[in-house]
Design a protein around this nucleic acid. Structure first.
Lengths: 330, 330
DNA sequence: ACTCCTTGGGAGATCGATCTCCCACACTGT
DNA sequence: ACAGTGTGGGAGATCGATCTCCCAAGGAGT
């Protein structure tokens, strides 16, 4: 009742382990078609399954890529992980997803866990632009690592991200084109590179005295807080750019409860274009990341020689997705 | 520059591989404290990392548990995976999460992938009560498998689920206690055991001619459809029980848009108690699963001898969480 | 007909950690 | 002082698949 090994298959087919391996692993070596057929048949009949640990030990590769995301509670990161999984699977691999619970200590632990020869490469969406650096650098010295969607200083490796500055410009141009000029930013999580870049791009474009509401984290609840604050204090505002979709969701629902019509009095935009946005009322204008292209690039870099992963940031072009939350003034 | 092996650590510490292994793997065998110290020190200094494949090959265990969930797009399953991850990590293991994209074919493929000696055991939240059975049974013949949150017929293994009938009773008693008697059910995904059980429990309690709105899938969008249908056709209704939180979210927003006050005219309940419910307006009454206890039980069963995993369903008691969506009539 | 290739296929080494012996030494009790 | 007991530690086998040789058979060329 013990699981059949390659040896058993070879014996059943009347060939050596080497030949059986050549057939089943698809090594580029010619094998007599008749023997190949016998091996295939024997494997099928015995219900043979490759022992993954043995192959990994011998070949030194696992066919598995790991990714550590800040939090799966944020649907954007679920979408991101999904895009990566698609690409990895298309390449015949497997993706293992870990959640860092928005905590650099947990993040370091997760990276450490994945490192023990379990993965061929690691993708990290760093929790913090500063504090995540050391753990990533340590990992990058032992395994190929590529940062994704966010960067971290001192990481020692390349980052594949969105061009947040261009994205902010797209949003502001869109709003200004609609005649909205008193624009506020609701930003969160300045510790992350994406949070910081979006804030910086906004203040650079609109001036340092433009209205900003800063929040600790990318959550729906934070969005509600922002909504309350804007409804009460910032009554002159006619548009709000949110630094993340989850913020926009909370914001819009709170504004509406406070009898502030969206987009009637205030136009609202999100950031990340998560799927839930289409289902809201009103659907929210947002920025779409070219996740497929980014995933493809990240995986290419992961498999490239180490010298192509020098510490730097590659930025991908964002795309504006217009929905009714920024309809022209009613 | 090649990674240090146990052999290198042993040599550096001046002991044999066996002793180094005893120290680093923590085998319950006495080792001279001085030698142990030298091994620890050498491992530290060389930056030694255990080769996971080698250990897995030798010991036949990987320390990894896999879980296949229907869809991570549903926040409930994210929460569920998180609860499992906590338990697994507490036991010193690692959890690998796979997404079946609500498709039994993908599900079978994911199970197959995880099976190749990569995991010590498998947890499955089956997509379908009927169609998921064969793939699960095939897996269960090769590795310990426990179903979680849903069951599947012909799976050949045990399922750890919620007592959906008791849950439905809790909801109905609560609503009736508030004087709401014209109750409709919005149900989805009858292919899943949870969807089917909730519908069955409702019709049994309320009679076969009670109003039900059946939808194909557990998504927010489906909830919106239901909302539209209820606002238009079922005007006599004073309460709606939704078979899942994501349905309730869509339903409530649509009802409100149609000028049907919640809970003013219609009380609404969800099912699964996902975190987002607290953040909505109004917060939605729901059923909480004892996920921690369920996760603990599932993992215990996974490690138990096969004979304890005979095909059956273990049901855990639900808990009613009351929020303002079922406030007393205004 | 004889050598030289080409090509299929097998024997054995190998990946790195753990486990199973078994030995050496020290200590106890009579 | 000697057998008996216990404890620390090492040599070698082992897990299962792959890789590196190397050999044998058959075909081509002169």
């Amino acid at each position: 009742m013990t699981a059949p090994r390659l040896l058993d298959v070879a014996a059943a087919a009347g060939v050596s382990r080497a030949t059986a391996s050549r057939v089943l692993a698809g090594t580029p070596r010619n094998v007599d078609p008749e023997l190949a057929r016998r091996v295939e048949e024997a494997a099928q009949r015995l219900g043979y399954r490759l022992n993954h640990s043995a192959r990994a030990l011998r070949t030194g590769t696992t066919g598995t890529i790991g990714v550590v995301v800040p939090s799966l509670a944020n649907p954007y990161f679920v979408q991101l992980a999904d895009a990566l999984a698609q690409q990895v699977r298309a390449a015949g691999g497997q993706l293992v997803v870990s959640d860092a619970a928005n905590d650099t200590a947990v993040e370091a632990e997760q990276i450490e866990t994945l490192l023990g020869g379990r993965v061929d490469g690691l993708l990290v969406v760093p929790v913090s632009a500063g504090a995540s650096g050391p753990a990533v650098r340590a990992a990058a010295e032992r395994t190929p690592v590529v940062l994704f969607d966010r960067w971290a200083t001192g990481s020692g490796t390349v980052a594949v991200t969105l061009d947040n500055t261009a994205a902010m410009r797209l949003l502001l141009d869109h709003l200004e084109g609609l005649g909205r000029h008193r624009i506020a930013l609701v930003a969160a999580d300045q510790a992350s590179s994406s949070g910081a870049e979006r804030l910086a791009a906004f203040t650079e474009a609109r001036g340092a005295d433009a209205t900003t509401v800063l929040l600790p984290s990318f959550t729906t609840d934070a969005g509600r807080t922002a909504g309350r604050r804007i409804a009460e204090r910032h009554t002159g505002i006619d548009a709000v750019v949110c630094g993340a979709d989850v913020l926009a969701v909370g914001l819009v629902s709170t504004l509406q409860r406070s009898a502030v019509p969206v987009p009637g009095r205030i136009a609202v935009t999100g950031f990340d274009d998560t799927e839930m946005l289409e289902l809201l009322d009103p659907p929210i204008t947002s920025i779409r990341h070219p996740l497929t292209a980014m995933a493809e690039r990240a995986l290419t870099l992961l498999q490239a020689p180490a010298r192509e992963r020098t510490e730097r940031v590659e930025r991908f072009a964002p795309q504006l997705v217009v929905r009714s939350s920024t309809d022209a003034d009613a």
